[in-house]
Nucleic acid binder design. Structure first.
Lengths: 190, 190, 190, 190
DNA sequence: CCATAAGCGAGACGGTACGTCACGTCTTTGG
DNA sequence: CCAAAGACGTGACGTACCGTCTCGCTTATGG
């Protein structure tokens, strides 16, 4: 994605940009990640193929841009001060995100692609959607002095890991016990 | 994959079968999953393209067959009777498998593909390499009366999940504390 | 085609032979020459593929064997002594053969194939179905002393050529005037 | 073949077009019609396979386009006013075309293919290279009032047929007597 | 009367062309 | 200079058929 502001010539069409992002969202739901192609995205968006390539390199990049904002919103939970309650709410949100949300489907597709494409792996590593949101909840519950980074990472893994394993391996998300996972994670903070 | 025993006609060539499986193993390491093609596999194996398609539908199927045996071996740990020790050994094996082993790279590629190909998802669901091995270790540590399936699944998620999250999100596997993860998982069994 | 008599071992199956010849006849009508394959012939005949290849090299060879007898029969006309009448009858038979008969369709297919396959060309040259029949009619009309080979060939070309051109170039065979062609050919004999 | 003028988008590459036509010409001579493949044509022309398929459906179509202009030139003879002389010159040209010229080899291959492919038959029927040139010569020799279409067709068959039969059945073209064939054909015009 | 030999149907084998699709680039017209 | 349209060279897709090669079986001859 190019970011520097163009100074001369015709400016970038905001209409084309959002048409592409919406097309990717739609196509992910309609045909799935594997069947989604740069050609198909351009046609669906009513945009030239070159215009897509001008601003994004791969379908993963577009999908990332199209879904990361939604992802962050869906994983943000209000802070009440009750750590166990907040963390449980977060796990519920995480379960909903990974197993039911469209943005979550996009995230799973990207996480999958990252396993066989280094560029996508780096794209995801740059913005750790899951980890950042989890750390935020855990840190908020601890009040003033935050736990050390190591401890926080460990608790994050204990919080996100079980849900991720459950969903990625295709199990029924309803059988997860959010409160129990939240509790086990919080115990790692001590 | 066809399994029924053929009675008439030329029998299946065991040489061709193993050449394909080895080719897939090699190519995964050399070019990666994304760049691996059915055409490339056939050529590398010195085998006709039709022969590959005759016995496997997709590269994922071949890779699965080629790596599942190695995977099981690498994830099997000896039972000593000391539950914490055995479980910690398992977590170490799991970390090595997911982050360093070739079979583990194959598994990650397949798990990734499963996120955008239902057929691969079902293939992996049919043989839950990670879950089966984890459950075996946890159940062995409990002696006679095994824990309920639900409890065992929960502990399995607590055991496998953090490691999986850590590796899939590209973090340094050396920063994982195997003993701590094992302990947290065992606590779920009570 | 092999002809020498086998002395030992299982003798050639006459049933397989005729099944193949009939299959070729049928397939020519049903799917046409281009879509006729050795594989298809074997399957249609209920015969192993190797059995076909054991006795014939190409579909052209099979088709030739399957149709040459019919061709000769359809192009034989009774000799009455009236040269113009007999020759006209022959032209009528030739028109029917080339434009309506199944054996004629086989001949046209083979003649076509001969234009881009030397082996088929030699096969046809070995047994000049059209020329032989035409020369027989023309020679019969001349009584005792036959015309020279050159003259006979010229008259044959004048007899067969116009019909062949007409049919091969896809024109309506009904618009041909058999008597006139016969007359012109006979004039070449003087 | 598409002919309508494209208005937007990259225009058709004339270089690719002529590279394909030349490749077909060359390959026909080098490997023959049967061994000529769409793949081989594309590779020889240094052109993408899709580009070939975009403008032509079959190798016959390409060959037709590549050879019809040459064919017409080779079969055109100057009109002197002496009908027998002109017609004899035409027969000589026809003999040379069918038995020695590259364009003639292409024509024979196409005529052969037309016998087992209806599409090719229609392609040739649309532009009757042989008949058109023959009719032109015969009509020119008759002065003002042209002969009826039927009579002209009959004379054309008498002119082209014998030569065609001779060459297609693989006989030596040198043994044809052009003047005699011309004379017999002209006699059909009365 | 069994050993040897060859033909049989079936079907897998290594190849290769098929026609299609998507890739990422290039070259037009037009805003 | 951007955008659309669409042709370009490249190369994998999954299929079909090529001609060959095992298989187990059948059907002959001949010691």
């Amino acid at each position: 994605m190019r970011t520097e502001t163009a100074r001369v010539g015709r400016p970038r069409s905001e209409q084309a940009r959002s048409a592409v992002l919406h097309a990717v969202d739609d196509l992910l739901v309609e045909v799935g990640y594997a069947a989604m192609t740069m050609k198909g995205i351009a046609e669906r968006a009513g945009v030239g193929r070159q215009t897509v390539y001008r601003w994004w390199s791969t379908k993963a990049e577009i999908l990332f841009e199209a879904s990361v904002i939604d992802a962050r919103q869906e994983l943000a939970v209000p802070v009440t001060g009750d750590a166990l309650h907040d963390t449980t709410a977060y796990v519920d949100a995480l379960i909903a995100f990974l197993s039911r949300s469209d943005a979550g489907a996009a995230y799973r597709a990207l996480l999958g692609e990252a396993q066989h494409d280094r560029a996508v792996a780096e794209l995801l590593a740059g913005t750790d959607v899951l980890g950042d949101s989890a750390r935020a909840v855990l840190a908020a519950g601890r009040g003033d002095e935050g736990p050390s980074a190591d401890v926080l990472d460990r608790a994050t893994a204990a919080l996100v890991g079980p849900v991720l394993y459950w969903v990625l391996s295709g199990r029924d998300a309803n059988r997860l016990d959010a409160r129990r996972i939240a509790g086990a994670s919080l115990r790692e903070l001590d």
